[in-house]
Computed example of a mutant assay.
Amino acid sequence: MSHIHLDPYLPSKTLEQVDDWTQDFNLTIVLSKDRKSKLGDYRRLRGDGHLITINHSLEPYLFFFVLTHELAHLYTFSTYGPRVGAHGKEWKQTFRSMLLETLDKYPEELQEPIRSFARLPKANFMASPELVRHFQYNTLGPNEAYMEDLGFDTRFEYRGEEFLTLSKLKKNYLCQHIATGRKYRFNCLARVKLRK
């Protein structure tokens, strides 16, 4: 079964790979509206059906990366059964193998970060700053920045709340919620809105 509807969302010459991976499965892939909590999702349906949803607005290489992540769930479930951990060792091994199999589908500057990520795949690609920078730097909106780009004592907005940067920790930033005075840690690649 071809997933030709995905062709405009995928990097060139990757649809054939997706079709090869999915030909033996009763799989539906649905384009989803943007979700802040996740980029993609895999679910087993009743009977022998499977469903993958992917945020429709992802940059093509990120779309392919996320689809590979979700297909690794499908393969893991089909190979090892439903009792394995969602992001356990079986999934990591499957995802690693699929990433390395398709390494040449990515631009040269992205191949080393993906190879590095594949050594010990995480559930969320946000664990790899190199991948985040490549996939998301070009998608910052007006008045948006990453935490690591802010100076200290800078006010910013995150999910409608106002914060102040205080200090840098090992990998995160310590910030103070303006309204309550409570302190929170922010990932260095958290996307925030600059205050005017």
Rank of each mutant, 00 (worst) to 15 (best):
N26C: 07
L27R: 01
T28I: 03
V30S: 12
V30L: 13
K33W: 03
D34K: 09
D34G: 00
K36T: 10
K36N: 07
L39E: 02
L39M: 11
G47W: 05
L51C: 11
L51I: 07
L51M: 11
I52A: 02
I52H: 02
I54P: 00
I54N: 01
I54M: 13
N55D: 08
L58A: 04
E59T: 03
E59R: 07
E59L: 06
P60G: 09
Y61A: 00
F63V: 03
V66S: 07
V66I: 14
V66Y: 04
T68L: 12
E70A: 09
E70C: 06
L71S: 06
L71M: 15
L71A: 05
A72F: 08
H73T: 09
Y75V: 13
T76D: 15
T76A: 14
F77Y: 15
F77C: 08
T79N: 14
T79P: 00
Y80Q: 11
G81H: 10
R83P: 00
V84S: 13
G85L: 15
A86W: 13
A86K: 14
G88C: 13
G88H: 12
G88I: 13
K89S: 15
K89A: 14
E90F: 12
W91E: 03
W91D: 01
T94V: 15
T94S: 10
T94K: 14
F95D: 01
R96K: 14
R96Y: 02
M98Q: 13
L100W: 10
E101L: 14
E101K: 15
T102N: 15
D104G: 06
K105D: 12
K105G: 03
E108F: 02
E108D: 07
E109Q: 08
E109D: 12
E109A: 02
E109M: 05
